[in-house]
Amino acid sequence: MKKGLLPLLMVILFYSDSVFMLFFSEQAFDGAYTPVPRFFLIGLLMMAVFFDRNTAIKYGFFFGFLFDMFYTGLLGAYFFFLPLLVYITSKLTKWLHGTLPVLFIIILFDVALIELMIYGLNVLVQRTAVSFEQFAYVRLIAVLVLNGLFYMIFAIPLRNAFIHLKKVFD
């Protein structure tokens, strides 16, 4: 029964991105910045570090697939990038110690990486005409600030939740 809490937690994180968009006015800061919530990605990476890497990869595939179909309509992007990021992160945490401050840097790196990859893909398929400078100033910085704040608030509860779930599963 308690094992159902893991998918439930991930589903909540999955929808939290779009719910954040409902609350957050797009006209905030006069529309000068485009902060993008990457809460699900952060949760997924915490899962990879504190729970289990292979389960996180499976969740990455599944929810990446849902994200592509439901929100963007460009199939394959998140489906491929989310598991890749899980893999990269798990390698990085093996070299560096997986403490919360170190993980903060790693997760910010991952968030920047996914933004860059999605931007690159959009330029490649000509779905956007945004220049790189514009992308960096309008989007990248705002995204890092927003998701950094999210991590600072939710890192400890998420870590405790995943450690607890790991005990339940073992």
């Binding site: 954040f20 968009m21 485009t34 993008v36 929100y71 963007t72 309509g73 999605i118 779905r127």
Partner: peptide, 12 residues
């Protein structure tokens, strides 16, 4: 919903 990654200006 609004596309959370804010690239394509899509709403559901």
């Amino acid at each position: 919903a609004r596309n959370p990654d804010r690239w394509y200006e899509l709403i559901t």
